[in-house]
Amino acid sequence: MLPNEQSNIHDLTPENFQSILLEQSQTQLVLVFFWAQSIPESVELLPVVEHLAGQHLGKIILAKVDCESQRQIAMQFGVQAIPTLALVKEGQPIDGLAGQQTQAQVQEWLENHLPKPEDELLQQAQVLIAQEQYTQAYSPISQAIEIAPERVDIQKALIDVYVNTGKVAEAESLLSQIKMIDQDDYYQSLLAKLELAKEAADSPEIQALEQQIKDNPSDEMLPVKLAVALHQVQRNEEALAHLLGLMTRRLDAANGEARKILMDILQTLPDGDPLATKCRRRLYSLLY
């Protein structure tokens, strides 16, 4: 594929100026390269810039400006030297680089503005959180916090996922580490969610079942019912502990219902959840 056939490389003209610099720059960085056939340094740099753009498909749009045929665009940017590179984000120039550059210099300059891996993971998680797909959001936000544990925005997204996947203790612990300067509206909403989750976690139904188990310790269906009730309020670790406790005494406890409910709960846990891994190992040891 020739460079100018790549979907992220364009010749900037008055006709596509608004589409690229105002609209497409809302979601991707636009790298504007000002060059001219009569300036050898810019001609030499052109394939370098095209190569770098090709390496960052989905992250960068390259808009080439031939300053000999598109003088008006060059004037709008106030270009005083050729070659010149400019970065546009959300319709606004954010940085520039003038004069002859090596590929390494341009690459280093670009990397200061390109989304980092943790930013992309956070963005994935935020989309899923907005769709209330908290289980699916667990994997990308967990990866993001491993890369950048100091990032408060990542911490808050992780707390959101924790609260909505029943990890109340983890959410409370991480929330307590947020400094006052970072306690914005999102923090306040997380605090409210956490309090609601804690209140819902000890419902009258759960309290009644716990009392019934004390009064009827030989009834195997009661711990199963309690596990279901605990799962409904995201207290999955306790739910699984009750079921594994039953199965430790008898594998087919409650006519096999304990194992069925345990497997159902495991299916709802996020990919990579340490609780699921721990429970599966325990179950394997019971079965084999």
Results as ranks from 00 to 15, higher is better:
L52E: 00
A53L: 08
H56C: 08
G58K: 10
G58R: 09
G58P: 11
K59F: 02
K59G: 01
I60G: 01
I60K: 05
I61T: 14
L62W: 11
A63P: 08
K64P: 05
V65H: 09
V65E: 07
D66N: 15
D66M: 08
C67F: 07
C67R: 02
C67G: 14
S69G: 02
S69Y: 08
Q72W: 01
Q72D: 14
I73L: 09
I73T: 08
A74Q: 06
A74R: 08
Q76P: 04
Q76S: 14
G78C: 09
G78I: 11
V79P: 05
V79D: 01
V79W: 05
Q80S: 12
Q80W: 02
A81C: 03
A81D: 03
I82S: 03
I82N: 03
P83A: 07
P83E: 06
P83F: 12
P83T: 07
P83Q: 10
L85E: 09
A86F: 06
A86C: 12
L87G: 01
L87R: 03
V88A: 04
K89Q: 14
K89W: 13
E90V: 11
E90Y: 11
G91A: 13
I94E: 03
I94A: 02
D95I: 06
D95V: 06
G96H: 14
L97W: 05
A98D: 01
G99Y: 09
G99L: 09
G99F: 07
Q100Y: 10
A104D: 15
A104E: 15
V106T: 14
V106P: 05
V106M: 12
E108Y: 09
E108F: 08
E108R: 15
W109S: 01
L110G: 04
L110W: 12
E111G: 05
E111Q: 15
E111S: 14
E111H: 14
E111C: 08
H113A: 03
H113V: 02
H113F: 15
L114I: 05
P115T: 12
P115W: 13
K116A: 15
K116Y: 04
P117C: 09
P117E: 07
D119G: 13
D119R: 12
E120A: 13
L122R: 13
L122T: 06
Q123H: 13
Q124C: 04
Q124T: 12
Q126E: 14
V127K: 10
L128E: 00
L128G: 00
I129Q: 03
I129R: 07
A130D: 09
A130C: 00
Q131G: 06
Q131R: 10
E132V: 00
E132S: 12
E132A: 10
Q133P: 00
Y134C: 03
T135F: 00
Q136I: 13
Q136N: 07
Q136K: 13
A137N: 00
Y138M: 03
